[in-house]
């Protein structure tokens, strides 16, 4: 597994820890259960497949969560003097094409653009980082779009 850094908010970390605990418990329960026979006449037994699939699914997800928990970095509000700039965790109000939009800048694991949670690694997220209120961020590949920063909140 790669040692990529994962940026998480307090809520994001809680969610991952909760899921991890739940999956470990489930894994324990599954392994205590009687293993269904592999074969059912000539064909593989569906119950065994289902059991195996469940375990594989659980194991790969547990491994993924462990990797995240080993490599995460907490998104903390920046020091007071830095709060006029956009950092991870900032709630940003922007004006785009004459319309107002609101984003929260998060790490890739919590990004959900439909809910306005923009990844700091996306072209828009990246361009907004470290910018201040009043600044205009131009994304021009290939269409020119101006994001005017109206508010930054932590």
């Amino acid at each position: 597994m790669s040692d990529q850094k994962y940026y998480l908010t307090k809520e994001g970390l809680k969610k991952i820890k909760r899921e991890y605990k739940k999956l470990l418990k489930l894994r324990q329960l599954k392994s205590k259960r009687e293993v269904p026979p592999v074969l059912h006449s000539e064909e593989l037994n569906t119950e065994f497949i289902s059991y195996r699939d469940d375990l594989d699914f659980l194991d790969s997800r547990i491994a993924e969560l462990e990797n995240i928990l080993k490599n995460y970095e907490f998104i903390k509000p920046p020091p007071r003097k830095e709060r006029d700039k956009i950092h991870l965790g900032a709630q940003v109000q922007v004006e785009v094409d004459g319309q107002i939009d609101e984003f929260t800048i998060v790490g890739t694991l919590e990004a959900n653009p439909s809910l306005g949670k923009i990844s700091n690694e996306s072209p828009v997220g990246k361009a907004l980082m470290n910018r201040k209120v009043g600044e205009e961020v131009v994304i021009s590949s290939p269409v020119r779009v101006i994001y005017k920063i109206k508010k930054i909140m932590y």
Binding site: I118, N120, E121, S122, P123, V124, I139, S141, V143, V145
Partner: peptide, 28 residues
């Protein structure tokens, strides 16, 4: 324009960002 704008806000995978740049070269 919205096709590009929406994608620039939604995609953060480095390979896919590179792919977008290549699409730009191809189509624009």
């Amino acid at each position: 324009k919205s096709w590009w704008i929406g994608t620039a806000e939604k995609v953060d995978d480095p390979l896919l960002i590179k792919f977008m740049a290549e699409l730009e070269k191809k189509f624009c």
